[in-house]
Design a binder for these strands. Structure first.
Lengths: 109, 109
DNA sequence: AAAAATGTTCGCAAATATACGAACAATAAA
DNA sequence: TTTATTGTTCGTATATTTGCGAACATTTTT
């Protein structure tokens, strides 16, 4: 076989989280939710320089990545950090970045 | 004005790093470099299930995001973690994830 | 019941991303 | 000087992402 290796589950999970965080609007949404200024769609939208349809789409992506969750609180919608997955992401990123960082015997000095 | 706010510099920088990490192949490359198994393109390529042209492209993206750097060591090419930016990324992600995480007075419990 | 408020979904356009083989460039080895 | 080795770049195809307005669905309010 030409390409023996594939990707590890951790690499894929980390990439999935990273990808979800890979847009300024989504980072802004996450920070807004972390700051607990509000959890309502309308307030999130007001904070961002994009149309509500686009905000809704970004929220959907964050939800599908598992970083947030949403529930209807008629007539509004409340979005929250998904604590369980948030902890997972925090840990995966922490492990990733403390992965020696780099060594003394680095082939790159 | 309809949309008063934009994104902060930190949000954009974090998103840029996250985006670069948002693909399993690129995560695999970073981990390979961190593990210091080798820094040569050929060895990186062997580790991945994709064509060399594609590997080269992913390396270019990581380089443009500032996470790695490359130098010619004829006839090979050596890629390395960009230490300065790596530290920056580490710090930005650490700060981001320790951003209270979430509060007791969370509007989402 | 009609009107207002709040978001989601649809349809579309434009921009990016992903992947590959073939061609190319540069150095090293024969 | 050929030939081999090592990567990059080019051209192309396909898929995904981003963004918007309009239409739609739901619940509240009047």
């Amino acid at each position: 076989m030409e390409h023996p290796k594939s990707y590890t589950h951790k690499q894929e999970q980390l990439a999935r989280f990273a990808k979800a965080m890979g847009h300024p609007a989504r980072m802004a949404i996450l920070q807004f939710l972390l700051a607990q200024e509000s959890c309502y769609f309308g307030d999130i939208h007001e904070e961002l320089p994009i149309a509500k349809a686009t905000v809704s789409q970004h929220l959907k992506e964050l939800k599908e990545a598992g970083l947030i969750q949403g529930e209807i609180e008629a007539p509004k919608v409340r979005y929250c950090i998904n604590k369980e997955n948030w902890e997972l992401a925090r840990k995966l990123f922490a492990d990733f970045f403390s992965q020696t960082g780099y060594r003394k015997e680095n082939c790159c000095q």
